[in-house]
Simulated scan of single mutants.
Amino acid sequence: MHDIPPELLGEAILANVQAALTEDIGTGDITAQLIPAGRTGCARVISREKAVLCGTAWADEAFRQVDPGLTIEWHAADGDAIAAGQLLLQACGPARSLLSAERTVLNFLQLLSGIATRCSHFQHLLDGTSARLLDTRKTLPGLRLAEKYAVRCGNGHNHRLGLYDAFLIKENHIAACGGITQAVASAQRLFPQRPVEVEVETLDELHVALTSGAQLIMLDNFSLEDMRRAVAITAGRVALEASGGINEANLRQVAETGVDYISLGTLTKDVKAIDLSMRLVL
Results as ranks from 00 to 15, higher is better:
G213H: 07
A209C: 13
K148D: 04
T234K: 09
K269F: 00
Y261A: 00
G154R: 01
F167P: 12
R228C: 11
V231W: 15
L267R: 01
A230I: 04
A185R: 01
A255E: 08
Y164W: 14
E241T: 01
L219T: 15
H157T: 00
L190G: 13
A183C: 10
N172I: 09
G154L: 00
L163D: 07
E241V: 02
N155V: 02
R237E: 10
Y261D: 01
L163V: 12
I262N: 13
I262H: 06
H207L: 13
C177F: 02
L163T: 07
Y164A: 03
L219C: 15
G265A: 06
A150L: 07
A239R: 14
T136L: 07
V151K: 00
V196G: 06
E197H: 08
N172Y: 11
K138H: 13
S243V: 04
N247F: 02
N247R: 04
C177I: 02
A150V: 14
S186N: 07
A146G: 08
A249W: 08
E197Y: 05
I246P: 08
L143N: 11
L140K: 12
D226C: 06
L219F: 14
E197M: 07
Y164G: 06
E201A: 13
A255V: 04
R144F: 05
T211N: 06
Y261V: 00
T211H: 09
G236K: 04
I217P: 15
D260T: 14
L224T: 09
I262W: 03
H159T: 06
R160W: 10
H173I: 10
Q182E: 04
T211Y: 07
E171I: 11
L251Q: 14
D220C: 13
V198T: 10
E241N: 09
K170Q: 14
G244W: 10
F222T: 12
Y261W: 12
I180N: 01
D260F: 09
E201M: 03
A235V: 15
E225Y: 12
E225F: 05
A249V: 12
L145S: 06
T139D: 11
D220I: 11
A185M: 10
L219W: 10
V198E: 04
L267E: 01
T211P: 01
K148C: 01
A249L: 04
N172H: 13
E241Y: 03
V184E: 00
